[in-house]
Write a protein that binds this DNA or RNA. Structure first.
Lengths: 346, 346
DNA sequence: ACCGATTATTAACACGTGTTAGAAACTCGT
DNA sequence: ACGAGTTTCTAACACGTGTTAATAATCGGT
């Protein structure tokens, strides 16, 4: 039942119908000064009747710009959209797009490779998200002269980047718990991915881990003294992990989750187990997602300005697209927000 | 500080460097049979050294397809990304994109007009979201021969569409409350937008309203007997609205929220007011967002399969892009999920 | 009425690719 | 060694636009 897809109406058709040249049509749309007012009106009328609008792709080719930003994602679209972190990040990035009149192209990996996805995207520049192990993406983008900004990765020379002070954030959270007297601490981390075996921790996770370690060191503890659990970053996995942790003997008196989602899942589990928070167990999160305020008890967590991160990334990218050749780096601050889920040891 | 942006390396450069014609380069990349194995290897090697990859925009123009789907949005990007509804919808749509190897272009209104945004997007087709008052978008897309699917709008002849049985969902929710004995009911609706004055209710909201009305009619009530509040669709606005509702005399014994976000905000308010749910007031939502299970009491709500909606919309769109000229309509079912936030009147 | 000066229009090119028709080279049987 | 047949390559076009250089038309002035 495939219909005869009628060919698009092009500027040539309009020119023919109006009895002028193709260039005249182009002028009528773009540069009104180069054409008489009368014929301009006539051309626009004819164009309206025929339903002509310039082909966007042809325009892009001619002008050499697409008026859209690419977001190079480390995971497939369903996984990304399920993660509220990205929603917030895209809010910030969206603000820049809104201001600049740009559109947003979500570019997931192609055949499990961010690198392979690059040459297929028609964009003016890329926001590269969560690039933990660079397999040539930076070189590829640099070589092709495509502007880009790295977000949540290991900053490199010669590439603009936006990050958050993960180290300080994690340090503060753990110090807070230590100050409250906790010594039996469990770290609930999101899954570092399959590359961990090859490269070790990378990017934000590496920095948070080192922040934890540094805080522990201030009281003479090491990673051997804490229980480390790594699970996918979902509420349900946080739930399960916390449930299992409470079966240990001795059970931890504090859980340091490296993501709010995990922390909230843990709170769910503790409530279902009738474990008092913060009476028996303290819980900290990371991110300060909106939900952190709505759960009970309200979550003590490390705020990271996700929206601002998206906004700064967007600003850096449009600068780069405009031709600024410097490579700014920015590290946004984190802050420990103490609410109700942490308290002194019993 | 604008550096001399070195011109992109094109297939012409590769041809010159390898001592062959430009066509040979194209064949080396696309149709290996039309070229000898030796020269193909040489060309690819030279291409590698020079760092050549085909210009995506030029390809699009030549092949007449972009390998990306457009999502035509009714609001600006920040507003959209703040709304968890869209996150879920995009998960479903993302599944289709993942399967088909497509990319997703988020297209917000241009100068407050969805219509104006259309001609600037380089996409193979559009998913048109929440088109409540058609100002020519359908005609424009039809005329330009761009495939599209309407989602959450007023279905039209000659255009494929995906919807949800909003009427039945709302009917069930209200019937449920009526069966429990409630007669003092408040309806907590999201803002219908500025067009309401001109066009009245449209799209999903219109259908939900009529479902409410029909249910009320079964016990001889009308809209004059309920309290209607319309607020922006955020948790905080739901909170405020519910707080205000409880000041009424007599206060409602049941709140029908037309969105889970609003319902959850209402629950927050009732908890802060020490109003027992469902002992003193019953609350229903709409959507069955994941949060509905995590709040306490768990929310009684109308499930709508948002992810499935996105998936079906995606499937319809790729079919349309492949040239199927039929115009399928699908209305997905809703279901009342009774949890803990509703109970018999005291 | 005719020429210089201005304006209105158009032909030609560029953007970078994929593809068809035809020329060039190369193989092979007699 | 020479034409038939096969393989290898290339010139030319198409996709649809924006823009520059050149041409055709118009206008005012003596």
């Amino acid at each position: 039942m495939s219909g005869p897809t009628e060919p698009r109406v092009t500027s040539k058709d309009v020119a023919a119908a109006a009895g002028v040249s193709r260039s005249a049509v182009s002028f009528a749309f773009n540069d009104p000064t180069k054409i008489s007012d009368a014929t301009r009106r006539r051309i626009l009328e004819v164009a309206g009747e025929l339903g002509y609008t310039p082909n966007p792709v042809a325009r892009m080719l001619q002008q050499g710009r697409t008026r859209s930003l690419g977001v190079l994602l480390p995971q497939d679209l369903p996984q990304v959209m399920e993660n509220p972190y990205y929603a917030q990040f895209l809010v910030g990035l969206g603000q820049v797009c809104h201001r600049e009149g740009l559109t947003l192209l979500l570019t997931p990996p192609l055949r499990n490779s961010m690198l392979k996805a690059i040459p297929y995207a028609a964009v003016d520049g890329f926001v590269v998200c969560g690039l933990e192990t660079d397999r040539g993406e930076v070189a590829e983008l640099t070589r092709r002269g495509i502007p880009f900004v790295l977000v949540d990765s290991d900053p490199q020379e010669g590439a603009p980047s936006v990050d958050v002070d993960d180290h300080a954030g994690a340090y503060e959270a753990v110090r807070h718990l230590l100050d409250l007297g906790h010594r039996h601490i469990a770290v609930l981390s999101f899954d570092p991915g399959p590359d961990k075996a090859v490269y070790g921790y990378r990017g934000p996770l590496a920095r948070r881990m080192s922040g934890v370690a540094e805080a522990l060191a201030t009281v003479g503890l090491t990673f051997d003294d804490v229980r480390l659990v790594e699970v996918p970053c979902t509420r349900l996995d946080g739930y399960r992990a916390a449930r299992d942790l409470m079966l240990l003997d001795p059970a931890p008196t504090a859980i340091v989750a490296l993501s709010d989602i995990l922390a909230i899942g843990a709170l769910d589990a503790l409530r279902d187990l009738d474990v008092d928070v913060p009476g028996e167990v303290s819980v900290t999160g990371f991110d300060d997602q909106p939900e952190a305020v709505w759960v009970r008890p309200r979550l003590t967590t490390v705020r990271q300005p996700i929206q601002a991160k998206g906004r700064v990334a967007g600003d850096f990218l449009v600068s780069a697209i405009r031709g600024e050749t410097q490579h700014p780096h920015q590290t946004l601050h984190t802050a420990l927000i103490v609410r109700e889920s942490t308290g002194p040891i019993a």
